[in-house]
């Protein structure tokens, strides 16, 4: 048994759970999870994964904390405005749980650096807010056969799905290419209920923990759709597309693509957190 007394006490309420136990906790402590985007989704995801004892937790974000982030990005405090998110998040998460290792990446992912960043992680959580980065992450995870926990939200609705290359559909099976720039409202225009981001982020955190522990039914090929106004949560089957340009039988995409950014000029430097 590799847990010390402090760990036994810290994690006691989940060690107690059927199907977790000491072995499950050790699995969590050995897990390596990367959260891309420390924003509305990344805040709850990273906080719960840190608290649960995910041993190595990477946080990618190139942005600084802004006042308008705080209604949904609950990992930050008002006195952190202007600070790098990845660094502020690291400080906060290490205070939540000094038992784990949090690794910040203050950078914007692109086709040149993403493989290097994700290579040390087993599970990647998508907490981004823009299509170019989402597609980049999807493609990188398919090419490197890494499990991706997808999540997104818009106004009062959100979605989540687990992408396990080879076992279920990826983003491109559902939507082969990102929508053209200008067709979708920018992140600034869209608006969101802060708590909705929390709901979707917690679905992602829950799925991540289930996968690490090997318990339950991961939502592979099941797209979860949540509507906050109706308080509806449904799962729809999503099929793997054999003609998918990246994970299909004859893939046409063999290298990573940097799509044009969407949310206007400002976003070119700050696109990674919803």
């Amino acid at each position: 048994m590799g847990l010390n007394d402090e760990q036994i006490e810290r994690y006691s309420r989940q060690i107690i759970l059927p199907h977790v136990g000491g072995k499950g906790q050790e699995r969590l402590l050995k897990a390596k999870v990367l959260v891309i985007g420390a924003g509305g989704l990344g805040s709850p995801v990273a906080t719960y994964l840190a608290a649960a004892g995910v041993g190595i937790l990477g946080i990618v974000d190139s942005d600084e904390v802004e006042l308008s982030n705080l209604h949904r990005q609950i990992i930050y405090s008002s006195d952190e405005i202007g600070k790098k998110k990845a660094i502020s998040a690291q400080v906060r998460l290490q205070r939540v749980n000094p038992d784990i290792k949090v690794i910040p990446y203050v950078l914007r992912l692109n086709s040149e650096n993403i493989m290097e960043v994700i290579k040390d992680y087993e599970i990647i959580v998508d907490g981004t807010d823009n299509f170019p980065t989402r597609y980049l992450i999807n493609d990188a995870c398919v090419l490197s056969r890494k499990t991706l926990i997808f999540g997104a939200f818009f106004r009062y609705e959100g979605q989540a799905m687990v992408i396990k290359p080879g076992e279920g559909p990826c983003i491109r099976c559902l939507f082969p290419t990102p929508p053209p720039p200008g067709l979708v409202p920018s992140c600034q225009e869209a608006g969101v209920l802060g708590a909705l981001a929390g709901v979707i982020g917690l679905i992602q955190a829950t799925e991540t923990l289930k996968l690490v522990l090997g318990i339950g039914e991961p939502i592979i090929g099941k797209l979860v759709l949540f509507n906050a106004l109706e308080m509806d949560l449904i799962k729809v089957n999503a099929r793997k597309d054999e003609n998918c340009p990246i994970c299909g039988e004859k893939p046409t995409i063999k290298e990573l693509i940097d799509y044009e950014l969407f949310c206007g000029m400002k976003s070119a430097t700050r696109p990674t957190s919803p």
């Binding site: 048994m1 847990l3 006691s12 309420r13 072995k23």
Partner: peptide, 14 residues
């Protein structure tokens, strides 16, 4: 409680 049960459970696991 419940730490006593947690420790019992961990012991039994082994």
């Amino acid at each position: 409680c419940p730490l006593n049960y947690v420790k019992t459970k961990l012991m039994l696991e082994e």
